[in-house]
Every structure is written in C-alpha cells, then in structure tokens.
C-alpha cells in the first residue's frame, strides 16, 4: 500500500496534480505554526536568566540551522535514490532543495553572527561549528553552480546528486563539531539524550518555529518541483494538455494587447 503510493508519486503527472491540491493546506498550517511560534517566542516566552531578551534570536537561528543540515541530508538521500533507481523526481527533489538549503544556511550564519556579537563579543570565530557551517554553504553553492553549468538538465541533475553525496562527509563533522572541539559555540540544547536543557516555556515556541520552517521548506520545494517538472516534461503530452491550451490563449491575448493589429487577424 505504502510502496504503491510511492510508485504513483514518482510519476511526474500524478505528483503534479496531487501536490497542487496539497499546497494551499500546507501553506495555511505553515503560516499558523510560524505565527504561533513567533508570538510564543517574542511575547509569551520569558527572558533568559543569562542572556536576557537577546536569546530570542534562537527562534530563527536554531530552526534555520537545523534546516540547513536537514535539507542537505534530504538532498543527498534524494540524489542517491535518483542515481541508483533512476527516479527523475528524486533527482529533481535534490536539485530543487539546494537553493532553499543554501538560504537557510545563510540565514543561520547571519543570525548566529548577530547573536554572537552581544553574547560572545565577536561577530565571528573560526570554531568548529561555524567553520563547518560555512563549508556547508559552499557545498550548497557548488551544487547550485554545477547544476546551472550543465545544459542538459538530466545530466546536470545527476552530476549535482553525486556532488551532494560526496559532500555528505561534512554532515557528521558539523553535527558533532561542538562536542569534538568544545570551543565557543554552545553544546546541544534540545537534542540531548536526557531531557532538553531549555525551559518548557521557551521550548514550545522553538518547536513550533521548527515545525513551521520544515513546512515552509516542504512548500518551497513543492513549488520549485512543480515548475521544474513542467520545464523538463514540456514535450510530454500531459503538460501540453495541461498548459498548452490555456497558455496559447494567454499568449494570443497578450499579443493583442501589445500590438495595434486587428484582434481578428491574430487568432488561430
């Protein structure tokens, strides 16, 4: 049952239709989560005993840092699946994830920097976690650049997938860097094996934000996927059937509005 669902989802036309139906719902839930998280984090949660109100940047910084790793893993896994089983959709997931992941990584770096200045006394230190997060950003940029450089998109997708897989080596380094190097960056707060060392009133908005960010990624990747599918399958019958008639009508109308030609002479 589950496998059958996956097989059907791997077919681009089916995926296109289904994801179109999901999108509005996902958007509503995502917006609700983020609003609730922001309200909880900025208004409801108390100030920290050490860091005062400055700690509130955690509600952007930590979810985006989580996402930066999460998306990379998704990208690599999807790339691997695409390479091994030749599933086009998986390759497309990999390449459409890259720009989103890069944005989250950038966001994590910037917010971390803004947080570091008042707390640590510096915008930037070359410690294990910061450096490896920066490398992660470069890896994302490499994947994006490689995908953009190859004209044949199917080849480009595979090449990018290989690069993503090679870069996976960096993920454990980032994840464990704070424990291995024990430098300025704090250790894990939420994902500790015993109970999280964050007060419950601060934790709930954080988890809400994390959920909201995950959904945002899902929405963004679905939207990118849909346009990628349309572009790659533009020669197939279902896309022509879906877009063609509407598109042609649209184009005709545009041309009519732009030029002074008699509208009656333009129609097919």
């Amino acid at each position: 049952m589950f496998m059958r669902f996956f097989h059907r989802m791997a077919s681009p036309p089916y995926f296109y239709v289904i994801s179109g139906r999901w999108l509005p719902w996902l958007a509503v839930i995502c917006l609700a989560l983020i609003l609730a998280g922001l309200y909880g984090g900025l208004v409801e949660a108390p100030a920290d005993y050490q860091q005062g109100d400055s700690f509130r940047i955690i509600y952007i910084h930590v979810p985006s840092a989580w996402m930066s790793l999460f998306i990379y893993v998704v990208m690599a896994v999807a790339g691997g699946i695409g390479l091994i089983w030749h599933i086009k959709l998986a390759e497309m997931v990999a390449v459409s994830s890259a720009p989103i992941g890069a944005s989250f990584t950038f966001l994590a770096l910037v917010t971390g920097s803004l947080w570091g200045k008042p707390m640590w006394g510096t915008w930037w230190v070359w410690d294990g976690r910061l450096t490896s997060e920066l490398i992660l950003l470069f890896l994302y940029l490499g994947v994006i650049a490689l995908y953009g450089a190859i004209d044949d998109k199917r080849r480009a997708g595979r090449a990018a997938a290989i690069l993503a897989l090679v870069g996976v080596v960096n993920i454990p380094i980032i994840h464990y860097s704070v424990e291995w190097w024990n430098t300025l960056h704090q250790g894990p707060t939420v994902t500790k094996f015993d109970k999280p060392s964050i007060h419950i009133s601060m934790l709930i908005p954080l988890l809400l934000m994390a959920g909201g960010f995950k959904l945002f990624y899902l929405i963004a990747v679905l939207m990118r996927l849909r346009s990628e599918i349309l572009e790659r399958e533009r020669n197939s019958k279902w896309v022509t059937a879906l877009v063609g008639s509407e598109d042609r009508r649209q184009k005709t109308e545009d041309r009519v509005q732009e030029s002074d030609v008699d509208p009656r002479r333009v129609g097919p």
Binding site: I135, A145, I150, A159, L163
Partner: peptide
C-alpha cells in the same frame, strides 16, 4: 577528491571556475 570534481566538470566548456567552487570546500578539512 579533485578527481571527482574534474570528472564532474570535464564535459563543460568553462569548467575551471566551477571546478574550484566544487573542490575547494572539500579541501578545507
């Protein structure tokens, strides 16, 4: 590690700059 990067870019007309973008981050460790 560089061989992976070259293998990925060998078919490109302007592979040089991309190559450095792909390979240098992997060299950092």
């Amino acid at each position: 590690v560089g061989a992976i990067g070259v293998a990925l870019t060998v078919g490109l007309r302007r592979g040089g700059i991309i190559l450095s973008l792909l390979v240098l981050p992997l060299y950092i460790p």
